[in-house]
Each structure stands twice: as C-alpha cells, then as structure tokens.
C-alpha cells in the first residue's frame, strides 16, 4: 500500500474534564499510530473515553496533554481533512438529502456540487432520494446519507462514532458490508468506535481495546483475515472470544453458527 497523506499519530495523549470542580481523567497516556488507508476499530465499554478520543482527533475537544498529530501537525480544531459520522445521523431536517450531502462543500460551483452529490449518493446507494427530506428516510438510509455527507469533502480520515449503533440487527449487518465496500472504494483511513465486538472484527484491520476509568489502551489486536470476512469462521470466533475475554465475558468453547 502506498503511503498517502493523513498519517495519524497519537503520543502520550491524556485528557481530563472538570466535573463538580474535580478533575476527572478520561484518557490516560494513549499511544497509537494509524497509517493512511487503515481501518481501525476502537472498542470498549461505555465511559472508556473512546468517543472523547474521536472528538480530539476531530478537533472538537482541545486542551489535551500530549500530541495528536496529522502528518506531523498538531490538531487544533476541526478541518475538512477529517470527516465524521455520528451515532445520530444529524442530518439537518430543513435541508433535503442532496443539500445535506452538500453541507460541507464550500467554494464549489453549482455544477461541481451537483456532480459530487450525485456521485456520493450513488456510492452509498441513495440515488433517487436527492430531493427527499430526512424525515422521509429510514434509520439506515439516514445513516447512509450521513456517510455520503462525510465523504463528500474527500477527507483523509473518516471518523465513525458508533454509526450503526441505533440500527436494528439486520440493517446493521448489511450496513457493515456497505461500509467495507465504501472503504475499499475510497481507500481512506477509517476509525470506527463501536461497542459491538463482531462489528469491530468484521471491519477492522486492527482492533483497539480500551478500558475505562481512566481510559487507557489495553490491547491492540491485528486482524489478519482476508476480506470479505466470514463471521462464522472458526478463526473469527476465536478472536471474538479472545476479545470478550478481555471484558471478562469470554465463552469457554466458541461455537460455530451460521446465519
């Protein structure tokens, strides 16, 4: 893989909030380097600071200690080299789907904008919904539109904050496939925060396991499988139980099931 732009380096990163006049450490000494084009899943129980980590990379949280660098430059605020998909789709209800996808595009001619919007709606499989309003979309469709919006700016790093968390199980599995397809097509870095172990393994080149209070990286597991991955393969189940073990939720004998 050729080294493009957008290498993310996080060094000795710590962050604390003031809660009721007391400092509360949410991230402690985080170290990780993510080369361009990687898919990294971050997994952890609630309160482990994974969303905070994402918000730091996004530039919404500042005042951290340590380094958060993109191509060697400190992150100081939001920028269009990073895109985000939130758990709630956050489509603006007063804009059409097309206008929402174009939300981040600035200084482009109308024609260029049209082209980019159409291209991305097609990529996420929403062609034909351009002039619909968000309230007319299902949860999965709204999340697709949100992904299109995040990709329209051609970010180098796409951050995914539990993007599939509010979808039903079947839609969710389908969307995981879609995410993989989009990632393979766009060839950009994606960082996925999730609490679903299977999703983390299915999508990630690496799975980062975090534990809470304060949030630290407990373990980083490489996922060597070829894509598309088989959720029911023995190796897959093996890794899944290994990760669950980290949360003291391991099963004695991983069993194989098929869908």
């Amino acid at each position: 893989m050729s080294i493009g732009k957008g290498i993310l380096e996080i060094k000795n990163l710590s962050k604390s909030f003031i809660v009721d006049n007391n400092p509360l450490q949410v991230l402690n000494d985080i170290n990780i380097t993510i080369p361009p084009g990687n898919f990294v899943s971050i997994i952890g129980s609630s309160g482990c600071g994974k969303t905070t980590l994402l918000r730091i990379v996004l530039g919404l949280e500042t005042n951290y200690e340590g380094d958060a660098l993109i191509d060697g430059e400190q992150i100081e605020g939001p920028g269009i080299n990073r895109g985000i998909v939130f758990q709630d789709h956050r489509l603006l209800p007063w804009l059409t789907v097309g206008e929402n996808v174009a939300f981040g595009l600035d200084g482009k001619s109308r024609k260029e904008t049209e082209v980019i919007v159409d291209e991305h709606l097609k990529l996420v499989g929403l062609n034909g919904f351009k002039s619909a309003y968000p309230c007319q979309l299902s949860g999965g469709m709204a999340q697709r539109a949100a992904i299109a919006r995040a990709l329209a700016n051609k970010p180098e790093i796409l951050l995914l904050d539990e993007p599939l968390g509010s979808l039903d199980a079947m839609t969710r599995m389908h969307m995981q496939k879609e995410l993989e397809r989009i990632w393979l097509f766009e060839k950009i870095t994606m960082i996925l925060v999730t609490h679903d172990v299977e999703e983390a393994i299915y999508l990630g080149d690496k799975v980062v396991i975090m534990s809470s209070r304060p949030g630290v990286i407990k373990k980083i597991i490489d996922i060597p499988f070829t894509r598309p991955r088989d959720r029911s393969s023995y190796e897959f189940m093996q890794i899944k139980s290994e990760i669950l073990e980290e949360f003291h939720l391991g099963v004695e004998h991983p069993f194989i099931y098929s869908i």
Partner: peptide
Amino acid sequence: KKYRELARVFNYKSFRYLTKVILPGAL
C-alpha cells in the same frame, strides 16, 4: 447543540452558519 457542532466540524463561518443552520432551525 448537535447541529451547531456539525457546523463547527464543517468549518462554517458566521454568514453561512446563520443562513444554513441557525435561521432554518429557528424558523
């Protein structure tokens, strides 16, 4: 707040912020 945050992520400056986010939201 979530919409204001979104506008920050996409680097919205005052005029665009007002016409695309605040005013339609307040409409």
